[in-house]
């Protein structure tokens, strides 16, 4: 089953930049996919399109078989509840504790507090931060902060997890830990798509690699490495 499908997708920004040019590709349920390519090649654009942060200029995008391009504004939150997102800059709230940062994601989608009390410690255990519940982000290392943001993205058990350069701010050892975590999340059935230009990570993982260049797919390889 196709979890994600880009069908002839073109994205042209207001300033006429063509970020994606007639892209087509499918990602199956449970797959782990790397989006690679140099800076400005269109990786982030692909991710932003998927959570409807921006809209396509032409073509269509399907998530679980549903065309998300003609989604009503009021249905977008529902789409985002099914897609966890992780970013290079973590996007944690500095004045909330680790627990509160993760709980916040459940609160704002209206989950009752018993669900929050149950799921937040669970997911924080999964990312290995069960002992830091009451810490504030500034008291954590960068790698730990990224774990919190992954916990927040995954606490609602979304079928899809998107990561845009999640290791961009991390050293190689810490990055390895984050990749193990993402693999584990993938192993429990989550479809994971990760944009990166970190050669070592891609090469060590041996997963599907989709390479972009100036808004076009120039390679799609089953068990790929960063460059050929």
């Amino acid at each position: 089953m196709n979890m994600i499908e880009y069908r002839n997708v073109t994205k042209i920004y207001e300033d006429k930049t063509a970020a994606l040019k007639n892209i087509s590709l499918t990602i199956k349920k449970g797959e782990f996919v790397f989006l690679v390519g140099p800076s400005g090649s269109g990786k982030s654009t692909m991710i932003k399109l998927l959570i409807r942060e921006i809209a396509v200029s032409a073509g269509a995008i399907f998530v679980a078989g549903r065309n998300i391009c003609n989604l009503k504004q009021s249905r977008i939150p529902q789409l985002r509840r099914n897609i966890g997102s992780v970013f290079q800059d973590f996007k944690l709230l500095p004045n909330k504790t680790v627990f509160e940062n993760v709980a916040f994601a459940l609160e704002v989608i209206g989950k009752p507090s018993y669900v929050i009390k149950l799921q937040v410690p669970q997911v924080l255990k999964l990312v290995g931060l069960e002992h830091k519940l009451q810490s504030y982000p500034h008291q954590l290392s960068a790698g730990e902060q990224q774990r919190v943001s992954i916990a927040r993205a995954f606490v609602n058990r979304p079928p899809i997890l998107l990561a845009d350069e999640p290791t961009g701010n991390l050293d190689p050892v810490t990055s390895e830990g984050i990749m193990k975590l993402l693999s584990r999340i993938n192993l429990i059935g989550t479809t994971v798509a990760m944009a990166t230009h970190d050669k070592n990570i891609v090469n060590s993982m041996r997963r599907r690699v989709i390479e972009l260049e100036e808004g076009e797919i120039i390679r799609d390889q089953k068990r790929g490495v960063y460059g050929i």
């Binding site: 959570i51 009021s74 939150p77 529902q78 996007k91 709230l93 916040f104 704002v108």
Partner: peptide, 17 residues
């Protein structure tokens, strides 16, 4: 604004924000 950004990101409805 960061709080609002996160809320939108995790799928809060506009009214909830």
């Amino acid at each position: 604004r960061k709080e609002i950004e996160v809320m939108k990101l995790v799928g809060a409805t506009n009214w909830f924000v």
